[in-house]
Design a binder for these strands. Structure first.
Length: 570
DNA sequence: ATAGGGTTAG
């Protein structure tokens, strides 16, 4: 039996706007009025609680309102209808499926709450808000700008609330937290969350364990992951399952420890009779190929075929990709066709590998043919697919066609990625279309796409090769306030300068970086030596080799000083 | 719900 729960508990607009009498104080609104004020029959009812009608209204206000005015809009809304958002209401709004796909509006809402909406007095709701926000950023980490950075900030805030709040972590909120942090690749925060969960007395489930394992493996913390796996193995309740094994095998594969991965596979095979081994074999075949052990990869594929393990689209996809990477296009195409004949459905990923293979082999016609074919088969090209074809066109010297395809991506509603821009910028510089290349760089930044080290490398190379060294420096400086410093940016600039024979400038840049407290990796020295040699500047190359430039210190006036790169020219 | 595959670069 339900009460009149469809009636909003706040005052209705008509009542508020025509009321000239003194107004009563605002009323708290709860997300689920029937729970806030339960009738004796409520618990007997199997029906889910009915959300307050205010919930969708507030949510649509959050989604409609620009960030700059959201706080004021919320205040006005609450004033008009004489209501106050309860902590549980705020938490429910952030948890709602309507807000979950929109991390930024959600975050703005959270930040615009008057007096923090009393959340501090309600740690359960406070935790729920943070957990929902983190979940929201995790699921849109590809599209939300700097999702990981935002998430890191949120975790720092949550941590700062201390144990009094964190002891209210529930099994569900801890699990969600761990899943989100693992997905975002925040390993330090992930380990903290694990500890906080244990401190709150929450027992991890196998799923939570697996999420932790996967997060650690993806962050490259294999040793920690192995410890976690061993800890699982000693506890009956959460013994490693197929997924745990798979994650660990992936970790070994990525670290190049293929022997250990094989041993893990054998270990797994002892544990169970007929299990879905396909993912483990696939990971191994893929890694064997990527570490240059093509023969062993194919041997493993044959072993898989001989056993009764099912070969699915992913396994075939890996094999086709390895053949394409090897330039073995006949065999790749044959493998793909036979896979389809066996009833395993093709997909866009197969086509991406094949188009890329043909493109890299300089067979642009075949690449375009396959792009057409996939359309007729009903597979929709995604950004990977567009990127490989754009790359193929660029490599064939057809930059204009590549740019046309870039436009078509837009029309097809397919998001351009940092790869798209890197490929095009590189191609345009190689055709000496510098201004166009810079335009693409700007539109990438405008779109909120974070340039990678590779993206900056093609820009720095292109600009330095055409003598526009200072322009490259300026762009690098502009990135810093955005929190973007491509890892190898300085190194790449030095490299580009050396390649064009501007050694003095390269040395000046290197010294400037050291002065800012950054280290110059040893390989920069090696690279400089090689470039000097190549330029026929043997004397300077020899001088550099026998000096302590970039690696050591000298004493003068009993003061220890770094040996500057510029001393090369003294 | 957690696990395996595709795109830059010398």
């Amino acid at each position: 039996m339900r009460r009149f729960c469809h009636v909003p508990r706040g005052r209705l607009p008509a009542a508020a706007s025509h009321n000239h009498q003194p107004l009563p104080p605002p009323e708290w609104i709860e997300p689920y009025p029937d729970l806030a004020d339960p009738s004796p029959y409520a618990s007997a009812s199997a029906a889910p609680p009915t959300p307050s009608p205010w919930l969708p209204r507030v949510i649509s206000l959050i989604l409609r309102s620009p960030p700059a005015t959201l706080a004021a809009d919320l205040r006005a809304f609450c004033k008009t209808f004489l209501l106050r958002l309860s902590p549980a209401f705020v938490a429910a709004a952030l948890r709602s499926p309507q807000l979950a796909p929109h991390p930024l509006p959600s975050l703005h809402f959270f930040r615009s709450l008057p007096n923090g909406a009393d959340l501090l007095a309600h740690p359960q709701s406070l935790i729920s808000c943070y957990v929902s926000l983190l979940h929201s950023f995790a699921r849109s980490k590809e599209t939300a700008p700097d999702a990981a950075g935002q998430a890191r900030q949120l975790v720092a805030e949550l941590r700062a609330h201390g144990d009094a709040v964190l002891q209210h972590l529930t099994p569900a909120s801890s699990a969600s937290l761990i899943r989100s942090l693992a997905a975002l690749g925040l390993s330090e925060e992930l380990l903290w969350a694990w500890q906080a969960m244990r401190l709150a007395g929450v027992e991890p489930t196998r799923l939570t364990y697996n999420c932790l394992l996967d997060g650690l493996v993806n962050a490259g913390l294999l040793d920690t992951a192995i410890n976690v796996f061993d800890a699982m193995s000693t506890e009956d309740r959460v013994r490693p399952d197929l997924v745990s094994y798979n994650i660990l095998i992936k970790g070994y594969c990525r670290a190049g420890r293929l022997q250990d991965a094989m041993a893990q596979l054998a270990d797994m095979r002892e544990q169970a009779e007929l299990a879905p081994y396909s993912p483990m074999y696939t990971a191994l075949i893929d890694s064997m190929g990527k570490f240059g052990r093509e023969k062993e990869a194919m041997a493993l594929f044959e072993r898989m075929k001989a056993s009764r393990i099912e070969l699915d689209a992913v396994t075939y996809g890996v094999v086709v990709n390895r053949l394409c990477r090897f330039g073995n296009m006949d065999e790749a195409l044959t493998c793909f066709r036979s896979c389809v004949e066996k009833g395993v459905a093709g997909n866009a990923i197969f086509y991406t590998s094949l188009i890329d293979g043909f493109g890299k082999a300089g067979m642009i016609d075949q690449a375009q043919e396959l792009f057409k074919e996939m359309g007729t088969k009903g597979f929709v090209p995604d950004s990977y697919c567009y990127n490989v074809l754009i790359d193929a066109l660029v490599k064939a010297g057809r930059v204009d066609d590549a740019c046309a395809l870039y436009k078509r991506m837009e029309d097809d509603g397919c998001d351009q990625t940092v790869y798209t821009y890197t490929i095009l910028i590189d191609g345009l510089f190689k055709k000496h279309k510098n201004e166009e290349a810079l335009k693409f760089w700007d539109s990438m930044i405008d779109k909120g796409i974070t340039p990678t080290a590779a993206a900056f490398r093609v820009l720095a190379n292109g600009l330095c090769l055409s003598g526009k060294f200072s322009r490259a420096c300026k762009i690098l400086d502009e990135l810093a306030p955005m929190g973007v410093i491509p890892e190898t940016a300085h190194e790449d600039m030095i490299n580009a300068l050396c390649k064009t024979g501007r050694f003095k400038q390269a040395c000046k840049l290197a010294d400037g970086i050291v002065k800012k407290g950054r280290e110059i990796p040893g390989r920069v020295r090696t690279m400089m030596v090689n470039a000097l040699r190549k330029a026929g500047n043997t004397d300077l190359a020899v001088k550099l080799v026998h000096s302590k430039i970039g690696i050591g210190y000298e004493r003068s006036d009993s003061i220890k000083r770094r040996v500057k790169f510029q001393t090369l020219f003294e």
